[in-house]
Simulated scan of single mutants.
Amino acid sequence: MFRNYKAVGRVLYGRNALAQLDDIFEPLRVDAGSYVLFLLDEYFEGNELVDRIPMKDADMIRFMDVTDEPKTKVVDALVEEVMSEMGKPPVSVVGIGGGSVMDYAKAVRLMFTNPGSSSRYQGLDLIKNKGVHCTVVPTISGTGAEVSMTTVLTGPEKKLGIKGDYTPADQVVLDPDLIKSVPDPQHFYTAMDCYIHNVEALNGNRRTVMGASLGRESLHLCQEIFLSGNSRTPENDEKLMVASYLGGLSLTYSEVGACHAISYGLATVTGIHHGIGNCIVFNQLDEFYPDEVKEFRKMMEINKVDLPKGVLKDYSSDDIEKMVDVALTLTFMWAHVAGPEWESVITREKLRDLYMKM
């Protein structure tokens, strides 16, 4: 039986698209006391961007600490705080920032309508009730979180996304002007998440014509940007925002692979952020993606990026084993990489050796 995928509801695209936010929320503000909950990366606290947000008197704004990957306990605490203060859910939860803030927005909106802790819903199709309206506005491009069916969270036991038909945002605002101030090398690391998405989507057992078509165009845009010798131009900002969008969509019809599975283990134990974590892992995956890893290293050279080395040198053998444990739970990713008999290929020893190289 074919899965009938749920996509993002609406996409507002173009320079200065942020100025139309109020038009998006106006039809939702139908009842007295209606309010919008804005979640922003704390990087923007005191920034002029805040003044451009069309807030009404009843609206709430919370600045999110994204030092660590998104956590279920933060989602749960925020929902409890908002409900205690407001007495009812917002008409929209808005995530303005990078992938972590957008994932927080997508998760928080679901927990206004589904009981218990968000950790209960880490997995596929565990959410039973549609969440409140959700709007996401990326201010850095690469994660694909703006269109992804997954909201990735680290819980008390695992790092695993909430994924299903109720997860995608209802509204995406793609404004290329918003990503021009992203600092180096964060710009590169996050963009490489997009590049790696495409590599993994295009190389595996769940590859489809639909996913491959989207992934190839996204990959081509990444190559244009990061092999050009000048990735930081307005034109390349626009290309990257589109590449992120297409790369996120490609995963709906395919799957991530070895890099993401290993990176999840890395992040669970170390807290290393997803973008840079993926780059650290991908640099060791010549066995899986030889041509693409070679191209990735060329991109690093052209863009003068030096990856951190020896990031796991102070971690114990028990820590390494826990990373391996986490990576091995991601069976659907490994089945995409190596087929239904993947366990005969992806051994503990292989994964342990890869982590030891980091």
Score class of each variant (00 low, 15 high):
T167P: 04
E48A: 10
K130A: 12
H133K: 09
T143I: 02
M210W: 06
P27G: 08
F188H: 08
F288M: 09
S316L: 08
E224C: 11
V311N: 01
E343H: 12
V108K: 09
A191N: 04
I262V: 14
P70E: 08
Y35D: 02
A107Y: 07
V74C: 03
T150F: 12
G14H: 04
E42H: 15
Q171C: 09
M300Q: 15
S181L: 11
V326K: 11
L214C: 08
L37K: 02
E69G: 01
P90V: 00
N230M: 10
C134A: 15
I179D: 06
A107F: 07
W342N: 01
V172G: 06
M102R: 10
E45Y: 09
T167V: 15
S92R: 05
D165R: 13
D76A: 10
L12K: 13
G204K: 10
H260G: 06
M111V: 08
D125E: 15
D57F: 11
V8W: 06
I162H: 03
G123F: 08
E301N: 10
L21C: 05
H274C: 03
L330T: 04
D51E: 15
G310M: 07
V305P: 05
F112Y: 14
M299D: 07
Y104K: 03
L28C: 09
V108Y: 10
Y166T: 01
K313E: 13
W334L: 04
E217D: 14
I127V: 14
K159A: 04
V199K: 03
K106I: 05
I127W: 00
N114L: 05
K357C: 07
E343D: 10
M60Q: 13
D31P: 02
G229T: 10
F38K: 08
T252W: 09
S228W: 11
M55R: 15
D237C: 13
A243Q: 13
L40P: 06
K294A: 14
L28V: 05
L37Q: 04
S228M: 05
